[in-house]
């Protein structure tokens, strides 16, 4: 028990401090690296909860794909972070005020947090017995049966994202010469090539 408690607090502290560093660090590349650390610690929290699958998903998808993509974008885009930062400083007082108000309100909420009496039971009904089934298998069973509707819709949303990316960026450029491999292969040397016997001293 004690070990779990300690690791919970370690992970939480790392999450909070690295989240803060994402926002305040001067170099955007460092920000992304802090973000990766935050994702990893979140994965740690999921492992503590016994949700290995979600933890691994977080590492593979967020750290492996999303964060690396962020890194690419940050390095490839030529953004003047200095001017962005001055904007940031301009709105800092009001943003800080709103943050403090929200924080106070949220602490009010969680100070008196309680759940409905039926909530625990409602959650227990849909949670399978962990001695019978691993959580990856349990997820697989519901995703492709009970939640197939949501799963398919997620697919449609990704399709929209793909169509959107193509519509907004791809351009037809008719003036560009493209490599046409087939026509290269099917060129006949007899037609394309002419061998001329040039006499020396005369030229063509």
């Amino acid at each position: 028990m004690l070990l779990i408690d300690i690791s919970f607090y370690v992970f939480s502290t790392v999450i909070l401090s690295s989240a803060l560093l994402v926002v305040v660090s001067r170099n955007p590349v460092h920000s992304v690296l802090w973000l990766i650390l935050m994702f990893l610690s979140c994965a740690g929290l999921f492992v503590l909860l016994g949700a290995e699958f979600v933890a691994m998903l977080l590492v593979i998808v967020y750290v492996g794909a999303v964060a690396v993509l962020f890194l690419f974008v940050v390095m490839m885009l030529d953004i003047d972070f200095g001017s962005l930062r001055s904007e940031f400083a301009r709105y800092m007082p009001i943003a800080g005020l709103i943050c403090i108000i929200l924080l106070m309100e949220l602490s009010l909420v969680f100070g008196v947090w309680q759940t409905a009496e039926s909530a625990e039971q409602a959650r227990a009904v849909i949670t399978p017995d962990l001695s019978q089934v691993q959580n990856t298998a349990a997820l697989g069973h519901v995703i492709y049966s009970k939640y197939i509707y949501l799963f398919q819709t997620a697919g449609l949303i990704l399709l929209v994202a793909m169509i959107g990316a193509i519509v907004l960026t791809v351009r037809d450029r008719p003036n560009i010469k493209r490599q046409d491999v087939l026509s290269q292969i099917y060129r006949d040397p007899k037609e394309q090539l002419k061998i001329i016997d040039v006499e020396s001293g005369k030229g063509l």
Binding site: F110, V112, W113, Q114, T115, A116, A119, Q121, A122
Partner: peptide, 23 residues
């Protein structure tokens, strides 16, 4: 978190209770 379900009909039951949490 409060009602233990995302289905509207289940939420309806908990929402109808007199004592509701601030959350």
């Amino acid at each position: 978190g409060y009602s233990g379900s995302t289905v509207f009909s289940e939420i309806f039951i908990t929402a109808s209770a007199n004592e509701k949490s601030l959350g």
